[in-house]
Write a protein that binds this DNA or RNA. Sequence first.
DNA 1: GTCTATACCCGGATAGAC
DNA 2: GTCTATCCGGGTATAGAC
Lengths: 165, 165
Amino acid sequence: MAAGRELLEEGGPDALSMRRLAGRVGIRAPSIYKHLADKEALEVALIVDGLREFGELCEAAVAGADDPLAALAVAYRSWAVAHPHLYRLINDRPLPRDRLPEGLEARAGAPLVAAAGRDPDRARAAWAFAHGMVMLELTGRFPPGADIGAAWREGVRALASPEAV
Amino acid sequence: MAAGRELLEEGGPDALSMRRLAGRVGIRAPSIYKHLADKEALEVALIVDGLREFGELCEAAVAGADDPLAALAVAYRSWAVAHPHLYRLINDRPLPRDRLPEGLEARAGAPLVAAAGRDPDRARAAWAFAHGMVMLELTGRFPPGADIGAAWREGVRALASPEAV
DNA sequence: GTCTATACCCGGATAGAC
DNA sequence: GTCTATCCGGGTATAGAC
């Protein structure tokens, strides 16, 4: 499992092959299938691991922060930038919900929902903003000179004030 | 070119192979290389085509709208949902900027910059929100019962009012 | 649990004849 | 411009021996 995460984080999704995984742990490719049913099982395990880690980070970031949404934004961005390939594995493809532990997805999202005043639509808007910021940064889609931090602050400010109409 | 776009839109990036493209236009795979330098040239051509089309749609949506940002949001979402694979080819990977016509990227983004009151940070925040909403919808990452339209309205409302502090 | 050997897919791209 | 033949790489996965 650890080897799989290393491969993914070091080399992206293309580097996460059953052959390479076997090589990394010092056995031949076919032997992997004595430990893992198939590649999807590996991906699911990495998703569960990442989702758990990310959720805990968010909980820690929110705890005792005077501006939960801003704290969450910082935690969100820093985790995504530190683990871009794992972030994409989790958030840039359909989630295998039926193979995830009960409540894991909800727990990872709970801090944001709380920070958004328990308004699910506002929470989703805030999530979309954060996800969009991260994806555009990771793929280098912002123009070269863009001040990404300023855009984050602008979005957090706008989404933090439900009264603003 | 048209065949390439069909392949991409019908079957996603995996369907866009030089072999399939050749098959679609009725020749053998190697003959493709008499028309296209390599696969990247094909992708660049599709990106240019899509960026141009998308930019024109945004200009049309903004023209004469009383709420430009809301109109842009509708146009953005509908184009992305109608062409998900082309959208991702354009927005979910690094842009080959050096192979794009001069000014194309800027023109596609101009309507949003204008709608955001010429504040680049606010424009980028709004773009990130829209991009995040689209990506999360396309990948099915929102929870099953989520009201995606409501989240769009919430985000557009929040990002539309720069005065709100 | 590990191995070798293998089956079966796919991809991008080139050489050289016509 | 098209063809055939081919080279190279990659991948998931199974069979059967040890």
